[in-house]
Amino acid sequence: MRLSEAKSAIQKVKPHKIGMHFPKRAAWTPTIPASGPKIPDEILRLAIVKSPSAAKAAAPKPQAPARVVPEGVPRMRDGRPKYEDVPVTNIRNVIAKRLTESKQTIPHKYTSVKVAIDNAISLRKTLKESGANVSMNDIVLKGVSIALKQVPELNAVWSNGEVQRLEDVDMCIAVATDSGLFAPKLSKVDKLGLTGVNQHVKDIAGRAKSGKLTPNELSGGGFSVSNLGMFGITEFTAVINPPQAGILAVGGIEKELTLDGYVNTMTLTLSSDGRSVDANDAFVFCEKLKAILENPRIMLML
């Protein structure tokens, strides 16, 4: 057979016609042998830690803490604890709005003072023996009224960007009721004696709990007092009742050991409006109140 005839015969044979399959060629990746000095793994790890990008990439992503439900709590089908929607009363809404307004708009400044009240306890016992039953809260209220007359900057309200100092000492007291916390007003406390303060407080607190306060008794005043000593609270801070200039938080009686023996003390914390009360005025008020309560017999002369 001639060479030209052989080439023609080969071209006529098609691989797909006779069932021939050729494997696909795999991609060839060249292998480059390692060269250069060997770097220890310890040095490589230090380099990775010092690199900000590598450290950021290697840092584990924070995971949300798993919600832990105490044992014995009733749960719904999806595992969440059961709950009850409690409707909010109109009074609770008003209280919430006023508290929010107070903390958002009034710059609170806090000043605390510890008062030795052994003399006040002794005065209370003496008055009780003579038939005048007054409480420690009555003594504090009377002392606050005297201090407000001596430091009138605290007996004020903030109105339309101005400070209005009040002439009469109309003071509010915090009263807890089933409907919420009320702050009814005690009118002209500075003109009342200790027994008069006691009767006024009993009357207005009783009417507050029975819902018989008048609108005039729920407004006004330039200062408030909140006493939680009867609940075992030794120290706390109170929220200012706008637009008043301040509020005094009264803690319970504590016994402290001093060089002269045990002394009964009480912590008073003043919350003052930084817009209308200077820091020095707050310090002076606490100083005056401390002096009055530690020598309470001067109340009987005023």
Rank of each mutant, 00 (worst) to 15 (best):
K56V: 02
A66I: 14
P40L: 03
S53H: 02
I39G: 04
P33F: 00
A47W: 04
S53V: 15
K50Y: 11
P33I: 01
I39H: 00
A57G: 02
K56L: 12
K50Q: 14
P62M: 10
S35H: 10
P37R: 05
K38N: 02
G36M: 02
E42T: 09
V49S: 08
A64N: 13
T31M: 01
P30C: 01
A58D: 06
A54C: 05
P52H: 09
V49G: 05
K61A: 14
I43N: 00
L46C: 04
K56Y: 06
T29F: 09
T29A: 09
A58H: 02
Q63D: 06
A47N: 07
W28A: 11
P37T: 03
V49L: 12
S53N: 03
K50E: 15
A57L: 12
S53M: 07
A64G: 12
W28M: 02
P62W: 10
A47V: 09
I32V: 12
I48V: 11
S53D: 10
A47S: 13
A58I: 11
E42M: 05
I48T: 02
L46H: 07
A57W: 07
A59T: 11
A64R: 15
K38F: 03
A54W: 01
A34Q: 11
P40D: 04
K50M: 13
L46S: 07
G36E: 00
V49Y: 08
P52V: 09
R45M: 10
S53I: 15
P60V: 07
P33E: 14
R45Q: 15
V49R: 12
P37Y: 04
K56I: 05
I43A: 14
D41P: 03
D41T: 07
P65H: 06
T29E: 09
K61V: 10
A66K: 15
